[in-house]
Structures are given as C-alpha cells and as structure tokens.
C-alpha cells in the first residue's frame, strides 16, 4: 500500500510508472492491458497498418491471450522490439510476453532464463535470391554477399552452414527486416537469409515477387514460439494454454463462426465442453473466467483461421501449412488434451 502511494506521488511528479507485484497475471488484470512484444514490422506476422493498428499471426496470439485474460482482444499494447531489445524488454518486465518469431533454443531457455510456452510456427532458415542470379542451391553461393539480421539465430546458423560446407561469404549485418528488404532489393546483397516464413513474408511485399526464389535448402530448425519470464509459472500456464486452446480448437473443429453456438450449451463432445467452459472448471484453475478459451478463440479464430487469414496460401505471403498442419493431417501441431 505504501508502495502504491509512493508510485502515486511519482505519477504526480511526472509520468506514470507501473508496479509489478509477484504475479504477471494479477498485474495484467489490474492494468487492464496486456503488454505484448512484437517485431518492428514483418508483414503477416506483426506489422502496423497505415492507421497504426497491429495485425498478423504473432499479433493474433497476443490478442488471444488478451482476450482470455481480459475478455477484450483489443486490450493489448504492442511494444515493437528489435532483435537486440526483445529479451531485455521481457526480462525487465516492460512486456508481459514476447511473440516475435523467436526461436526456442537451449541457451535462451536455460541461460537467459526464459520460458518458451509452446511453438506457434515450425520454421527453418532459408535463402532468398533473385531469379536472374541463376542459383539453384545454397551450395553454389560461394563468395556471395549475404544480408542477415543481427542478434538472431540465423546469424549463427549461417556461419555454421557456410563453414561446414567450406564456402566463403560476405555478411552484411542489418538491424530490421525493412532494412534487409531495402538492401536486398537494391542489390547490395545477393542473398537474403532469415526464417523461411520471414522470407515468404518479405517476398510478398516486393513489387514483383515472381522475380525472386527461395532456395530449396533449409539449413536449420527454427521452432518459433511465444515466451515469458522464467519463474512465473501461473502466467506461463495462461499463455501456454491460450496457445494450446487455439491449436486444440482447430483440431476439434471449433471456429470463430460456430463458437457462439457451441459455447451456448454443452455439446456432445466433452473435450469441446471443457475447452469452452460449459463443463468442468478449467478456467478457474488458471485463475480466469470459465469462458476464457472461448474468448481467446473468438478473438481471431482458431489456429487454422489465424494462419489462413495472415500467412496462409490465399494471402500474398502464401505459406503452405507444411509442418504446421495438425498432427491429424501429418503436421507437428499437437495440443495436449484439455482435461
């Protein structure tokens, strides 16, 4: 109490200063908004439109969590982060969760003390080259100039790949995807490398996407997922199961179109009932309302809907589901049961 009063004084003195207590979940509820770290702009995953409204696949995850916790998918403050600032922003509590196509690696999980709550996109690092360069394999790239985003795992993978294939290259480090795009289009580098999904998104923004090809080699595993601070398990559970709810909803055939109907009364499928809160008390166990998952799914649709709307085959980005199909369709998406 004393502390809040002091903060009140600080508020008067200048600008608002928030105060975090033990649990992120309580903080978010008290604040009424979710602070979600996203990229500074990658079309399809997270980018502000001309009016400053954020949209994209990662943004969809943020909105789902906000809807689950606060019941309002617009109660999100999107904090743009670069490769450099993202981890400190999360560690310092400036953001509650990071959904910025971040690769789950051992050292980030263990050494940097973050908690990856799941994987929302199975990715791998690829190479984008102009068609008229006449290259059909990454092994032919000896001596090429390569644009890479610094501070990402792609930088390390690239060094490893070229080293193990014993070919040389000239790295051109860049800070944001926008810069990489400009450099690549101006021909200042022959190759642009980042996660294959990012390449597709970047290519989609080109004037003539057909003039550029993504090479067949995928040189790394890049499981991308949202992450939270280590040690706050309640909050990690909320984010983890909000993501799982999206995945499970697709598996169970719950879409934003039929969710009202399914949630109105218990259905024949007990797992759908538990998910949507018409049966059991899963929401209360998380410290949320009974209809938390329903809100999360209704925010932007289930995983499949989010995918199709933002990065799917009918969008300019045109990514196939591939590894990101449900396990029932031969993909890797597999939500633990809601029980």
């Amino acid at each position: 109490m004393k502390k809040t009063a002091f903060i009140g004084a600080l508020t008067v003195a200048g600008l608002a200063a928030g105060m975090a207590s033990a649990g992120t979940l309580d903080d978010v509820k008290e604040r009424g908004t979710l602070n979600c770290g996203v990229t500074t702009g990658l079309v399809g995953f997270a980018s502000p439109d001309a009016n400053g409204v954020w949209d994209g696949f990662d943004v969809g995850v943020c909105r789902a969590v906000a809807a689950a916790v606060l019941g309002d998918s617009d109660a999100v403050e999107f904090v743009p982060t670069t490769g450099k600032t993202r981890f400190t922003a999360l560690a310092s509590g400036e953001i509650d969760m990071l959904a910025r196509n971040t690769t789950w690696t051992f050292s980030r999980d263990v050494d940097l003390k973050f908690e990856f709550v799941g994987i929302n996109y199975y990715d791998g690092q690829g190479f984008l080259v102009p068609r008229d360069l006449g290259v059909s394999s990454a092994k032919e790239l000896d001596g090429a100039t390569v644009c890479i985003q610094t501070g990402t795992t792609t930088e390390l993978n690239l060094a490893d790949y070229f080293r193990s294939n014993n070919i040389s290259y000239e790295p051109v480090p860049i800070e944001t995807n926008a810069e990489g795009q400009q450099q690549y289009l101006a021909g200042a580098c022959d190759v642009y490398t980042t996660d294959a999904s990012g390449l597709a998104a970047t290519r989609a923004a080109f004037e003539n996407p057909a003039d550029h090809i993504v090479l067949p080699e995928i040189v790394s595993k890049e499981p991308l997922g949202p992450l939270v601070r280590h040690g706050d398990n309640d909050w990690a559970d909320v984010v983890r199961w909000s993501l799982n709810a999206l995945i499970a909803a697709e598996e169970l055939g719950v879409t934003s179109a039929n969710i009202e109907e399914l949630a109105a009364a218990p259905t024949g499928n007990p797992e759908v009932n538990r998910l949507l809160g018409t049966e059991g008390e899963l929401g209360a166990m998380l410290g949320l309302d009974a209809n938390w998952a329903m809100m999360a799914i209704a925010a932007g649709g289930n995983y499949g809907e989010l995918f199709e709307k933002n990065i799917g085959e009918n969008t300019p980005i045109g990514l196939a589901r591939g590894l990101n199909a449900q396990w029932t369709d031969g993909g890797l998406l597999y939500s633990p049961p809601f029980r």
Binding site: S47, N177, A178, Q181
Partner: peptide, 21 residues
C-alpha cells in the same frame, strides 16, 4: 527502436508495401 521521425521513416513507412523504396 523508438519511433521518432527517423525511426518512423526507417521502420513503418519504408517497410510498408506502398512506400518501399
């Protein structure tokens, strides 16, 4: 990564599909 006038130009404006370049 604060969007002052230079940050705006280098970030949101130049990376938008409409004004790339």
């Amino acid at each position: 990564s604060m969007f002052d006038v230079v940050g705006m130009i280098r970030g949101p404006i130049l990376s938008s599909t409409d004004w790339n370049g």
